[in-house]
Design a binder for these strands. Structure first.
Lengths: 154, 154
DNA sequence: TCTTGTTAATTAATATGTGAAATAATCATA
DNA sequence: TATGATTATTTCACATATTAATTAACAAGA
């Protein structure tokens, strides 16, 4: 067993703690939280989407979406509308104000992303992405009892 | 600019969303939250530590620690004591119950960690860790204005 | 000693995460 | 077509995150 800091959750959280402040500073300049930004970004790319779809794309839990969308709607950045075909569903759309805001943030966001990706070379980036995807695919569909039942591999 | 899902924050969050549920299931079996576990893990390794130190090691924000430690203390897993030399400081220590709990969780935690690391080979693991560390070191000490002032590198 | 600056911990206000349960609408089918 | 199963969203209760502002204690210097 490695040191606490060498475990995957801490490796990932240390990285997030290192990079997110600069993203948050950008969002804060437009009075947006990170989560609000994620939602706008999906709406901008996909138009009207259902709450469930939004939850999956943004990784934001459905119960959290309720409040986040409330606040975005109150600020006039998004609108919600019940589906006519399936009245269980709610369609979320960005308003013009929401779309405008998006285009104001993108240039700076691209600068941040460039700085992040340029910290390593493209091959390293791809390898990192592949490694994390491989881990996710291996673990995400397993339950704790699955893992505890497996014979030791190390 | 890549797709939303190809950006670093989302890559990291997708991975965390994929692996954390199995960790949380383990912690839940001992009535612990992930944050409470982080604290116990540090206390087990280091003995009595100050709140600030605990915040740095666990990545938990100091304001959050107040409540988390309150609940751990109420359950008799940790104790808090003002420092005599510097009465601003508070020393946190795990009780015997806290230490016992730790040894009960470790075996299963090692199984999870083994499954995670075995998803990729050691070289890939090291490369992933190095890549993320390099990104963190490059970005974490920069402010947004620093990044926006830099000439385009891409 | 008084002032000024700094550090450690906490409080406050707001936003979000997590897990379980509730609600309402749709679906499958006997 | 009534009924049980499923889906989409929301509510609830509790725990944590984020940022700014306090409070108390220490530290250095006029």
């Amino acid at each position: 067993m490695p040191a606490f800091r060498e475990t995957l959750p801490m490796i990932l959280n240390v990285t997030l703690d290192g990079v997110m402040p600069v993203y948050r500073e950008l969002f804060a300049r437009h009075a947006l939280t990170e989560q609000q930004w994620r939602i706008l970004r999906v709406l901008w790319a996909e138009g009207a989407v259902t709450t469930t779809h939004l939850s999956r794309q943004t990784l934001l839990p459905a119960p959290s979406l309720v409040g986040i969308l409330d606040r975005l709607e109150k600020r006039g950045l998004v609108t919600r509308q019940r589906s006519d075909h399936d009245r269980r569903k709610v369609h979320v759309t960005a308003t013009d104000a929401g779309l405008t805001l998006h285009s104001q943030v993108m240039p700076a966001l691209e600068r941040i992303h460039a700085a992040v990706t340029n910290a390593i070379n493209p091959a390293e980036w791809q390898a990192m992405q592949d490694a994390l995807a491989k881990i996710t695919n291996t673990i995400s569909d397993q339950t704790l009892d699955d893992l505890l039942a497996e014979p030791e591999t190390t």
